[in-house]
């Protein structure tokens, strides 16, 4: 991971979003969200279930259609091509591997830098080794991914993001469903990334053991970015309380990977 020295900090924010709306299946999930993340910052996006955290994060990466303006590293999302600067950790569970080893999953983190039809380079191998070692799984590389415990699977997905050598980490609920020891290990990984100047944006339910290294939190409620100082208990509307617009589930979590919907799948 030290192979590519981090590029000089770009002038201006790493992520800049202005008036972002996301509508999924006719339901507005993110509404008028604006935010900026500067180089080297560690930012947590917080909010209740259904507040639109994950959807906002996916919109920032161009994974769901959005309206409004999003810039990554100063480039409009539609023109952005430096994808290898990005280390994305999606929520666990969407990944379909029957047979792959942990190492094979991590190795796919290098594909943003590899050319098609060319064999894997020594630098790629080295980056995969280092990423596995960084999350404490150097000895688990040859294990089937599906046979690892939940916490270990999460560490593999983090290692895959590290293998990109990106200088912007985007992690979706890295602490969900992992045990205490893994949480502390991941906090150590994030601390070392921060020391190296990597920008980190995380969707979290609660700060947990990341509390010490987070520079700033962005609070979402019902699809809107709340002003600084807002607490989850407050009503997002001024003066009077409305019942929540939709129930407790995360709309985007229900969306399965498209691969499933052909009607031909077995089991």
């Amino acid at each position: 991971m030290q192979l590519n020295p981090s590029p000089p900090p770009a002038p201006g924010p790493v992520i800049s979003a202005t008036g972002v709306d996301v509508v999924l299946g006719g339901v507005p999930i993110v509404r008028g969200a604006s935010l900026e993340v500067d180089a080297g910052e560690v930012v947590a996006i917080l909010g209740n279930n259904g507040s639109g955290k994950t959807t906002l994060m996916r919109a920032l990466l161009g994974l769901v259609p959005h309206q409004g303006r999003i810039d990554l590293f100063g480039t409009p999302l539609a023109d952005f091509r430096q994808w290898s600067r990005l280390g994305y950790v999606p929520q666990r569970g969407g990944i379909l591997v029957q047979q792959a080893t942990a190492r094979e999953v991590v190795a796919s983190g290098r594909l943003g830098r590899r050319r098609p039809f060319l064999p894997v380079s020594a630098a790629d191998r080295h980056a995969v080794d280092e990423s596995l070692a960084e999350v404490g799984l150097a000895d688990r590389g040859r294990y089937p991914f599906v046979r690892l415990s939940g916490g270990q699977q999460q560490r593999v997905l983090i290692a895959r993001a590290l293998a990109t050598d990106g200088d912007l980490m985007v992690w979706d609920e890295p602490l969900a469903g992992v045990d205490r020891a893994t949480q502390e290990l991941l906090a150590g990984v994030a601390t070392r990334l921060k020391a190296r100047g990597t920008t980190i944006v995380m969707v979290l339910h609660e700060l947990g053991c990341f509390a010490d290294l987070i520079d700033r939190t962005i609070m979402l409620a019902d699809g809107r970015v709340m002003p600084p100082g807002y607490h989850p208990g407050d009503s997002p509307h001024h003066g009077h309380v409305h019942p929540p617009a939709h129930g407790g589930h995360e709309v985007d979590e229900l969306e399965r990977p498209h691969t499933h919907h052909t009607g031909l799948e077995v089991g």
Partner: peptide, 22 residues
């Protein structure tokens, strides 16, 4: 065989494959 890693990545995890620009 030439595109094995790329095809694997897309089959395993489409959002991640998109996020690295495949």
């Amino acid at each position: 065989i030439g595109l094995l890693p790329q095809l694997f990545a897309v089959s395993a995890d489409e959002p991640f494959a998109r996020s690295i620009g495949l």
